[in-house]
Write a protein that binds this DNA or RNA. Structure first.
Lengths: 217, 217
DNA sequence: CGCGTCTTTGAGAGGATTCAACGTGTGTGG
DNA sequence: CCACACACGTTGAATCCTCTCAAAGACGCG
């Protein structure tokens, strides 16, 4: 945490060559942020691109009625901000925990890339992955019901293991699934009554992933 | 249209070097599709990446209740499909008009990129742009009301000119804004009654962009 | 003219949020 | 040590937004 950030870590995070890592380190500024820092606000003209190295950042948009919805959560290896030129920021960017990142002004990376094409290759892979994730999220928002999104989120967090520990905080789960505490609570209550999940202290087990998957609608 | 596709067009579309264009042409297969072709279906394992050269493609997801929602529309210079490896396709991919594209198997491009890093640079720019667009769409879906999305879509299509011609087809507008014909019709009726827009034959004029912008909620 | 597509409008239903109330556990300050 | 605030979870009832269903009119086209 406290030790200075080493370029070799970049290699691991981006799975790129030492060449690329050192080029990035040479042009970017390393920053550390305490939890809850707000890097940018909805409506700002954002002229930065950040590479997350440690910790997670969330994109949160607040709608006119005051509700906040989470557009995404990004972790090490993800890029946040504007690549080519400054642009309006659609959402707040907030640190969920202690975060280390490398900062570049918008437009700098394209320059670097033309000098060191290897960097572009690494970027393309990262952007493609993030695009896919964002598209999947858009799909969920567009085609699933509120309860369906809760169920999908549970399955996603459980992974193959089939359980989640520590058990998810209901209100946080609701935020991630773009719905309310109450709806999330009702959805989980239903799952528990039907014996599809089991909540025991520090662990939430998914008894029947099959049934749960069928309820993702 | 009918003439064979020339690499020089790629340079213009991607604004890349001849080197990159010829590398892409060498590794990809040019295809032409008639309108309404469905390139891939929701749930397919899709092992391709396409570069659109002419025409537009839509990503359409159908939800369990049968409604289709449009996740995005892509045109020349956009990439659709899976970059690194085959993956489940979240939505149908359909041609809105006659489309020409260059097809690559998933995973091929990363290979090319490692041999010809210039290609990676071009890809990074394109992916960054698409990521930004997708994020903006996700934001709209998450924070705006149905009517708000209609209003926003109208403003977007009007651009600075302040009018749209030919006037938008209501049902198509509804699809783009992820709502129903009826809701879109009511939203536009309201705008017209309040004198915010004017529909005259082959032209729809936005009388008061300011008022309209304030209604985007 | 008949047909299909598109639009408009009304009425009804349904899903999700909002409001409200209550119970719990945790940490803080008196 | 206790009172208290506070965050979280649960549950019920009311409200609201949006979709669905239904009907009717406008328009272009063969």
């Amino acid at each position: 945490m406290a030790e200075p950030f080493a370029p070799s870590k970049l290699e691991a995070i981006l799975s790129c060559s030492p060449l690329v890592a050192s080029a990035l380190m040479r042009h970017g500024a390393v920053r550390a942020l305490p939890p809850r820092t707000r890097l940018a606000a909805q409506g700002d003209v954002l002229g930065m691109l950040w590479l997350i190295v440690e910790g997670r950042l969330a994109l949160e948009a607040v709608s006119s009625n005051g509700r906040v919805s989470r557009l995404g959560v990004h972790g090490p290896g993800d890029w946040i901000g504007n690549y080519a030129r400054p642009a309006l920021c659609v959402a707040d960017v907030v640190a969920l925990e202690r975060v280390t990142l490398v900062a570049f002004p918008s437009g700098r990376l394209p320059e670097i890339v033309s000098g060191e094409p290897q960097v572009g290759a690494a970027l393309a892979g990262a952007f493609a992955r993030q695009l896919e994730a964002t598209l999947a999220r858009l799909d969920a928002r567009s085609t699933l019901t509120s309860k369906g999104r809760i169920f999908a989120e549970l399955l996603r967090r459980a992974g193959d293991a089939g359980d989640i520990s520590p058990p998810p905080v209901v209100s946080e789960l609701a935020l991630a699934a773009q719905t309310t505490r109450e709806t999330a609570s009702r959805a989980m209550g239903e799952l528990e009554r039907r014996g599809i999940i089991l909540r025991r202290g520090e662990r939430l087990s998914i008894v029947s992933p099959r049934l749960l998957a069928e309820m993702v609608v």
